[in-house]
Design a binder for these strands. Structure first.
Lengths: 192, 192
DNA sequence: GCAAATGCCTAACAGTATTAGGGTGTGGTC
DNA sequence: GACCACACCCTAATACTGTTAGGCATTTGC
């Protein structure tokens, strides 16, 4: 029989494709095998099973997002960088909902450490260099931005903003303004 | 044979329990039936199937969260209310990770509209009355807060803050300070 | 060319989701 | 107080999905 020329990477890519089409939680080893034109057990040479398949898709998505974000941030700083990074996530989530959902998959510590996750944190930190924050405020801000970007994309993807005005894009622009303002006027420790 | 006295509500509650123990994505009709001491098909009198079961758990979780938040907000305003609402979500996510995950389940428009979802939005809006925001800025702020609360709890639940200082609680306090500050100094339209 | 590794297959089994259809309590009705 | 209808739960049966075991063939490295 003719070989299909599969590999872990190729399987993950096909899985990502499938995730975007039918949703990450409906990705199935059997379905993926069908689409690849091979028998189900054949995939077990490339991924360890259903859980591993999901992880591989997640890793792929994290890399792609990091690559896009890196490009989006190049040569920008301040509000411009903030808007670019946020848009990068928003756009990715819209174009690749399945991959985006995959990227939120919790994974064990060592896998997470070897993923592109740290690159994301580093980018946010780099972005903050355009503002005047010192530790530990910079860390707080990293977490705030991470939560906000992630939360916003999730809600937008779930259609949370679909049925009320103004539209998500407009609102997002104003939120970027607000956060930019916040980062430039971050409150000192004296407050309670 | 003796009857178990089940009902949709009771099944959903048991499902929520199960979700908290094993994780929302591992909730299974069979497993739930086993725990309830009935045969698997028996559950189909109370829920329409696997998908419906998940939805019922989600609706339950949304209600519980809304109830807790309502209580937490009572008699508070400004920064205090902000902190209370945020803590309400954070605590719920920590105590009931499975239910919390369930609450993020995307559902169709009509189901969502009939859920406690709108109550959550209303609470956030109510909270903002303690600040001086006019439309459309209030809407932007509602969305910002919703995204931030959700994103923060998700990341914290996934262990995203576990391996770096300062701890999540401290960081959260400072983020509340920052957001409180932001809401009191929300930037006007003239900025770009 | 040959040996070993690799890539893919078939066979087989456990577990889950779901439908169909049957019996038995339970509660309302006269 | 009998009866009837419905609600509730069961067994049987089917179709997948996930996974392991073991076999043949093609490719690759020497």
């Amino acid at each position: 029989m003719e070989r299909s020329g599969l590999s872990t990477r190729r399987v993950a890519e096909a899985g990502a494709e499938l995730a975007d089409e039918v949703g990450f939680d409906r990705v199935t080893v059997s379905d993926l095998a069908r689409r690849l034109g091979v028998a189900t057990p054949s995939l077990y040479s490339h991924v360890a099973g259903s859980a591993d398949l999901r992880t591989q898709i997640a890793l792929l998505a994290l890399e792609e997002m990091a690559d896009r974000s890196t490009e989006a941030l190049a040569g920008r700083s301040g509000r411009e960088a903030l808007a670019a990074l946020g848009s990068s996530y928003r756009t990715y989530a819209r174009e690749h909902p399945g991959r985006y959902a995959a990227a939120r998959l919790p994974m064990d510590t060592t896998t997470a450490a070897a993923s592109a996750g740290p690159r994301h944190a580093a980018m946010t930190r780099a972005l903050l260099r355009g503002y005047d924050l010192t530790e530990p405020d910079a860390t707080h801000a990293v977490r705030l931005l991470g939560s906000l970007f992630h939360g916003w994309s999730s809600l937008e993807l779930a259609g949370g903003f679909d049925h009320s005005a103004p539209d998500a894009g407009t609102s997002w622009e104003r939120v970027v303004d607000a956060v930019d303002h916040l980062l430039r006027t971050w409150p000192g420790e004296e407050r309670r």
